[in-house]
């Protein structure tokens, strides 16, 4: 079904731009056009679909579902909801305050906040289509387990003192809002609005991601990756995680990069560690979280994620 994008790229590269086939430039341009068209097409259709179904799930409802559940179930529910909801980092602060203010444990809240930006259903489908469904499974599983384990550790350590104290002083009403009945038209509008929002937020990341992917695809020889970052090189995984810390991209933007890295022979675990670190550890997100979390908690947060991704990288390199 996605052959049409390859055909489009053939036509633009060879007929329209007249670039000689089998050259580095042709490969790069072809990749850029095919992936840009494919990702934006999938992103738009999937977001519309997901946005429509998501009009049944509001953060207020998520809070309600998490309330008073036994701990293990609560962690699982928190990361599941985190995986299917794309609450942007701008809503993470109100969410955080409201969860804690109504008695949801800190670990459950953090589990939700860790998984939410990492796992994204559009990226999951793009990975499946571009790399393989095993990779999708590895990706979703990693995001959910990292969130659950992180949440459990935070609850075990009882580190509520690393949260800014004002958060616990806000009096949050438990059953604040009556939901209005939504008509089909409202839901469709909601889907359209959310899709526009997300496209506005991610288009640049996607273009940069495809651009970087295209450059690697066209110009970096396969031998380079195998020589420098193959499975035998034990430092490759931690290096990948550390290199990705200052990088930041939306998860949809890393799909083309991951696709190319794997096709060039970078091991699955190393690739997964690299993209997870790019997506989950980001300076803008940390700056936002600083409003409610003390520096110690942020340091713990980054250290935990980095360690988790290194472990994930080794495990998947060993398994695949």
């Amino acid at each position: 079904m996605f052959k049409i994008f390859a055909k489009l790229a053939d036509w633009v590269t060879h007929d329209l731009l007249q670039i000689a086939p089998q050259t580095h430039l042709a490969e790069a341009v072809h990749f850029f056009i095919e992936d840009t068209a494919k990702i934006f097409f999938l992103l738009t259709t999937l977001m519309l679909l997901v946005g429509f179904f998501r009009s049944w799930i509001s953060p207020e409802k998520v809070r309600h579902w998490l309330d008073g559940k036994p701990m293990l179930l609560a962690y699982f529910l928190a990361v599941t909801l985190g995986a299917i909801t794309p609450f942007c980092s701008c809503s993470s602060i109100p969410l955080f305050i409201a969860f804690l203010g109504t008695g949801i444990p800190l670990g459950v809240t953090m589990a939700f906040l860790i998984t939410s930006p990492m796992v994204n259903e559009v990226a999951a489908i793009l990975f499946g289509e571009a790399i393989g469904w095993q990779f999708t499974l590895a990706y979703v599983g990693t995001g959910m387990v990292t969130g659950m384990v992180g949440g459990a550790i935070i609850d075990c350590l009882k580190i509520e003192r690393w949260v800014e104290p004002f958060v616990f002083q806000i009096n949050v009403p438990k059953d604040g809002i009556e939901e209005r009945k939504l008509t089909l038209k409202h839901r469709l509008n909601h889907a359209w609005g959310e899709t526009k929002d997300i496209l506005q937020r991610v288009w640049l990341y996607v273009l940069i991601g495809v651009g970087v992917g295209a450059a690697i695809h066209g110009f970096v020889p396969q031998e380079w990756f195998i020589a420098h970052a193959g499975k035998d090189n034990l430092f490759a995984v931690p290096m990948a995680v550390i290199m990705a810390v200052p990088l930041y991209s939306n998860v949809t933007g890393v799909v083309p990069v991951a696709e190319v890295l794997i096709s060039k022979g970078l091991p699955v675990g190393t690739t997964l560690a690299f993209i997870m670190s790019t997506v989950a550890i980001s300076l803008p997100e940390l700056v936002i979280l600083r409003k409610v979390l003390k520096v110690q908690m942020l340091a713990f947060f980054v250290a935990y994620l980095a360690l988790a991704f290194v472990i994930v990288g080794y495990v998947f390199n060993y398994v695949f």
């Binding site: 109100p94 969410l95 409201a98 806000i170 809002i177």
Partner: peptide
Amino acid sequence: EIADIVAYGVMST
């Protein structure tokens, strides 16, 4: 103020 907004029970603006 985010804190005041949340005090209304609103989580998404």
